[in-house]
Amino acid sequence: MSVIRSDMGPWRDRRRYWDDLGLDSRAGREHIDPFNMPDDYGDKGFRAVPSTFDPVLAEASYRWYCPDEGAILDPFAGGSVRGLVAGSGGYAYTGVDLSSTQIAANRDQAAEWGTRDLLAVPPRWVEGDSAKTLSGLADASFDYVFTCPPYHNLERYSDHPDDLSAMTWARFERAYREVVAESARCLAPDRFSTWVVGDVRDSAGRIRGLVPLTIAAHRAAGMHLHNDAVLLNVIGTTAMRLPAQWRVSRKMGRIHQYVLTFVKGDGKRAARALPPFT
């Protein structure tokens, strides 16, 4: 398995480039409730904040796997990051999200970027349930799928009945498989799809298995795992939180995610559709 180092200097320098543009990755996400924090998390001076997506990972993935000016589908759009990075690179991005508040915040930020000529192609966000919305999209109408789905209930986004983060694990599995299948249908033949995922634990501390679920769901949809990589993130407060967690439960700290890239059709033909690698 390959390792992507987001904690290294060049990656962090590029992250500062995006931050300097005024990329507000938390806009519209103030209401999110980060779950699975220790009871004394706040007492120890830590502040639980919603997760944000790394713009450098989005930028690199688009260059690695999407044809020039290609159409990108994001079934779980969340914040503005993936859409703004895509639009600035000349890709036609369509993101789906259940939250009207999040969609409004994303559109506001895109409008502001547009006034500064930072977007070659304005990103498009659609409000709605992913499975239902994707079912209305045409077959084979996208060149790349790139998304970061809810890690079950690790963060609670809303109480909406179609919100995957509010579902039981059994219902989450069914809904998740449906979205994977619909995204595969929307993807053109000989094209790639990347899902950034991380495993979570149930109430008893057992690992759920979101990574194998993602692989199995794509296999059932006729897609095959093409690349798997571990994304190493900065340690942050994990080192301070880990000792107490380890003493009580022997649970390790998690400072990584999995970047899983699948192919629909033939991987070599998919690669030939991409710009030359430099």
Rank of each mutant, 00 (worst) to 15 (best):
residue 132 K to F: 11
residue 117 D to K: 12
residue 194 T to A: 08
residue 90 G to D: 05
residue 156 R to P: 08
residue 243 P to R: 03
residue 144 Y to M: 08
residue 111 A to S: 08
residue 104 A to G: 05
residue 126 V to H: 12
residue 81 V to Q: 05
residue 24 D to Q: 04
residue 260 L to H: 00
residue 63 R to W: 13
residue 185 R to Q: 00
residue 34 P to D: 10
residue 256 H to M: 02
residue 127 E to P: 03
residue 113 W to A: 08
residue 249 S to H: 09
residue 166 A to D: 06
residue 134 L to G: 01
residue 274 L to F: 06
residue 99 S to W: 00
residue 97 D to G: 07
residue 258 Y to T: 14
residue 254 R to P: 04
residue 200 V to C: 07
residue 167 M to I: 03
residue 183 S to W: 09
residue 22 G to H: 03
residue 244 A to V: 01
residue 5 R to L: 12
residue 140 A to C: 06
residue 240 M to T: 11
residue 157 Y to T: 05
residue 72 I to R: 04
residue 208 R to T: 11
residue 23 L to R: 03
residue 81 V to S: 06
residue 10 P to C: 08
residue 209 G to S: 03
residue 126 V to I: 15
residue 64 W to F: 13
residue 168 T to I: 03
residue 142 F to Y: 06
residue 113 W to F: 15
residue 10 P to A: 10
residue 20 D to M: 13
residue 203 S to L: 07
residue 134 L to H: 03
residue 1 M to Y: 09
residue 79 G to R: 04
residue 29 R to V: 11
residue 138 A to E: 15
residue 26 R to H: 12
residue 126 V to W: 13
residue 208 R to E: 08
residue 262 F to T: 02
residue 274 L to C: 06
residue 157 Y to S: 04
residue 204 A to W: 11
residue 94 T to D: 01
residue 127 E to G: 09
residue 123 P to M: 06
residue 36 N to M: 15
residue 271 A to W: 09
residue 165 S to T: 07
residue 112 E to V: 10
residue 76 F to Q: 09
residue 133 T to Q: 02
residue 30 E to I: 11
residue 166 A to H: 04
residue 65 Y to R: 09
residue 213 L to H: 07
residue 21 L to K: 13
residue 210 L to V: 01
residue 9 G to H: 13
residue 148 C to V: 00
residue 135 S to W: 05
residue 265 G to Q: 11
residue 24 D to S: 00
residue 128 G to T: 01
residue 63 R to T: 14
residue 118 L to K: 07
residue 17 Y to I: 10
residue 162 D to L: 14
residue 33 D to G: 10
residue 112 E to G: 12
residue 184 A to L: 05
residue 126 V to A: 11
residue 84 L to K: 03
residue 47 R to F: 14
residue 227 N to Q: 14
residue 75 P to V: 05
residue 179 V to P: 02
residue 20 D to K: 15
residue 37 M to W: 08
residue 35 F to D: 13
residue 179 V to R: 01
residue 62 Y to P: 09
residue 122 P to I: 02
residue 196 V to S: 11
residue 107 R to P: 10
residue 144 Y to F: 15
residue 17 Y to G: 14
